[in-house]
């Protein structure tokens, strides 16, 4: 039916245009501190979406926060010590994160499932403790980390120190990254990831090199996590080992799980919903110390009652509307 096709295409385009307008207008409707949170939210969207690419192959890593940190540290060092221009330093940071994932995949992908989870956790902690290690303080700054990271330079007299402008920069970078991630998922490569997740033995038996595809997913996911880290480092201006600890990893997991990982938009729904909940509701209640408890309760409730995440609500709501429509049509028919 070509007619409905153009219809949905048109609707889709309209939706995207509307989304773009909202995203561009949004910072002007917010206070200064909310704008700062918005920047971090956009960075976190990239972080959690890059995480999802790895989960497509069925592996859950606990190193993602540290890999983000690798991007942040590398970019900060490249800009500060090697005086790279900041945009180049950011790409270097992302590249280093990807390269590190390439190296790590040799030991890590000898394992699967629970063993991979634990091994990735160990590998991440080793990297994080190296930053903390007193013998390397001259390079990584020890537990205090790196301070006074050069900010993003002015471009065409746009001051990127302003959260609004940095938000637009992040928006563009993240939009391009998400597009790439989406295209990868929709390509043959993405299909192969799915195949490896659900039928790895079968995939191997028809000639798929599962190791290389797992490695590819890990490297791409690390590259974009590193990019998110670089965006973070040059915005905040300081990085420290504890910023990338296992607690941060827990938040990435919560966003992904509460949102759901079956669809591309699931993790985005998760991170946006929880950030709004966090910043609007919890902040207005003024219960900063209780924040982890809310997150914990949300995590438990969602795993118990909504194991497929918030994304699974959408088809349900659609189905509910469809059922109502049908019912109305039936009652109308009956009335006639």
């Amino acid at each position: 039916m070509p007619k409905t096709d153009t219809n949905t295409n048109f609707l889709g385009l309209l939706g995207f245009a509307l989304l773009a307008v909202v995203l561009i207008a949004l910072p002007h409707l917010l206070s200064f501190s909310q704008q700062e949170i918005l920047v971090l939210l956009v960075i976190n969207v990239l972080l959690v979406c890059s995480y999802r690419l790895l989960t497509l192959t069925g592996e859950w890593s606990l190193a993602h926060a540290v890999i983000m940190g690798v991007g942040a540290y590398s970019s900060a060092l490249a800009a500060k010590q090697l005086s790279f221009p900041v945009p180049l330093a950011m790409l270097t940071g992302a590249g280093v994160a990807g390269f590190l994932a390439f190296l790590l995949s040799f030991p890590l992908f000898r394992m699967k499932g629970f063993y991979f989870l634990i091994a990735s956790f160990a590998a991440g902690e080793v990297i994080r403790l190296t930053w903390k290690w007193s013998d390397l303080t001259f390079l990584f700054g020890g537990p205090k980390g790196i301070k006074r990271i050069p900010p993003f330079p002015d471009f065409l007299s746009i001051d990127f120190y302003e959260p609004v402008n940095y938000y637009y920069l992040c928006l563009i970078v993240v939009a391009i990254s998400l597009l790439i991630l989406y295209r990868i998922e929709r390509s043959r490569i993405g299909l192969t990831f799915h195949a490896i997740h659900w039928q790895d033995k079968l995939a191997e038996s028809v000639g798929v090199n599962t190791f290389r595809y797992r490695m590819l997913a890990f490297v791409v996911s690390a590259f974009f996590a590193g990019l998110a880290g670089a965006l973070y480092a040059h915005y905040v201006g300081a990085v420290a080992p504890n910023r990338f600890s296992v607690e941060e990893m827990v938040y990435i997991l919560i966003w992904a799980i509460v949102g759901g990982t079956a669809t591309f938009y699931g993790p985005i729904i998760g991170v946006v919903t929880l950030t709004i909940l966090n910043e609007v509701i919890l902040r207005s209640l003024d219960v900063d110390e209780m924040r982890p408890m809310f997150y914990g309760a949300i995590l438990i409730i969602s795993i118990l009652f909504l194991p497929n995440g918030l994304e699974s609500l959408l088809p349900k709501i659609k189905g509910w509307f469809a059922a109502r429509k049908e019912k109305r049509a039936m009652t109308e028919q009956l009335a006639e």
Binding site: W60, E289, P292, I300
Partner: peptide, 26 residues
Amino acid sequence: PLRDNPLGGLIASIGFLLILQTIAVL
């Protein structure tokens, strides 16, 4: 309730961990 879902048990225990930590802090 999560007996058939081993990853679910792990995730639920992370949630429980956050709750216990907060109770200790409070």
